[in-house]
Structures are given as structure tokens and as C-alpha cells.
Design a binder for these strands. Structure first.
Lengths: 90, 90
DNA sequence: ATTAAACTTAGACGATTATCTAAATATTGT
DNA sequence: ACAATATTTAGATAATCGTCTAAGTTTAAT
């Protein structure tokens, strides 16, 4: 299910840090890895979850893989969050 | 940490169902329990996590405990979510 | 074709999590 | 004080999760 993928992806603090790092622009997996302490394998695992939630997009460039934030999901996230609360005005 | 408590609380689908149930108004733990399949103990566990995230408030009434949604957190959640994405205009 | 570089996949391990049963703790009414 | 009701806490168990190492895959350059 889509909604669960999203909430699950956002539940991990390191994944949120990755998302924040990507705010500054697209980066290769290696560049992001350099910012954090974990192994390439762990990073790749996080990316697979972020991709499943459609929070990031990938594009191969040479033998690098460039990751970028998929900002269009923001609407979905917002909707899901708002959906959990009764609106004061509707 | 506050942010982690919030994202963690929202990560579980059953807790999101509880939040949605509370949209219709305050309910006692028992009333909510009647809507779901798990035991009172499990429910209580979920409530403790929702409380830690400040998503619900409690009030004792007789020997019932009334749970209600704390809508003021909505702002915090929204801010946290928006914080993860670069705004198109700022 | 081989090698090197950049990621991913597979498999393992410890930590956290959701759930349960059983026992404990209020609170009210008798 | 005592019993009944409502909820929480403790302790156990199975499943999920984050991380690691080691092996595999893909691309580019020689």
C-alpha cells in the first residue's frame, strides 16, 4: 500500500536526513554516502525504501546513479497527514 | 526527541486508524477498543505511543479514561513534513 | 576482454516493535 | 473494607528493521 510505504519511509531519522541532504540538489549515491557514516549497502537499502515510497527518483549517469527528491509526493504526504486530523474549517 | 516520536507514532497503520476514529469525537479506551480487534493491553500500548507524540490527550472520567485528538500537533506535523521538502516559493 | 569504480543484492545479526496473556492499579458503588 | 469495572504494566514471543560484510552486477575506460 502506498500510504504505508510513505509513513514507513519517513519513520527513520536517517532517511529523513537523506531527504534533507537532497534538498540542496541531486546527488550521486556516493556523494550522499560521504555525508553519512554508514556503508554503501545500508545507504542502498535506505534508497530502496525511499524509492518504494516514491520520495526519490533515480537516473543513471555514467557509472554513477543520481538521486533526486521527488517533490510531487509532498502533496500526497500533506493530504495523508491532513487526513488524520479533523479540519477546523471544511 | 519530539520529531522522532511523532513520525514513529504515525508509522503504524493501526495507530493511524485510531486517530481517524477519534476524529468523530472523544472516546473512552473501551469504546475505541470495541472498534478494533486487539486486546486492551495492545490498545493501551498504542495509546502510550500516541501520547508520547502528543497526538492524543487523556482525561479521566469516572473509571473511564477519555481519549481525544490533540489537533494542535497538526501544525507541528505539517511543519516537519514541509521541512523535508524544498518549497517552490518561500 | 579485463579491470576498476559505483551500486545493489543476499544473508546474518542485534535491536526494536506489535501483540498476547496474566498480573497490577485505580476508581466507583455497595 | 470489598467487589466490580476500566485501564495500565510486566513479561514473553514472533516479526520487522537497520546495519554490516561479502558477493554480484553494471558501466566505462583501457
Amino acid at each position: 500500500m502506498k500510504q504505508q510505504d510513505l509513513f514507513r519511509a519517513l519513520a527513520d531519522p536517517n532517511r529523513r536526513r537523506i531527504l534533507k541532504a537532497l534538498q540542496k540538489g541531486s546527488m550521486t549515491a556516493g556523494e550522499i554516502g560521504a555525508l553519512f557514516a554508514f556503508t554503501a549497502a545500508s545507504l542502498s537499502h535506505h534508497f530502496s525504501i525511499l524509492k518504494a515510497a516514491d520520495l526519490v527518483r533515480t537516473e543513471r549517469r555514467g557509472h554513477h546513479i543520481v538521486y533526486s527528491l521527488n517533490s510531487t509526493v509532498l502533496e500526497d504526504v500533506s493530504r495523508m497527514v491532513l487526513d488524520l486530523f479533523p479540519l477546523t474549517r471544511r
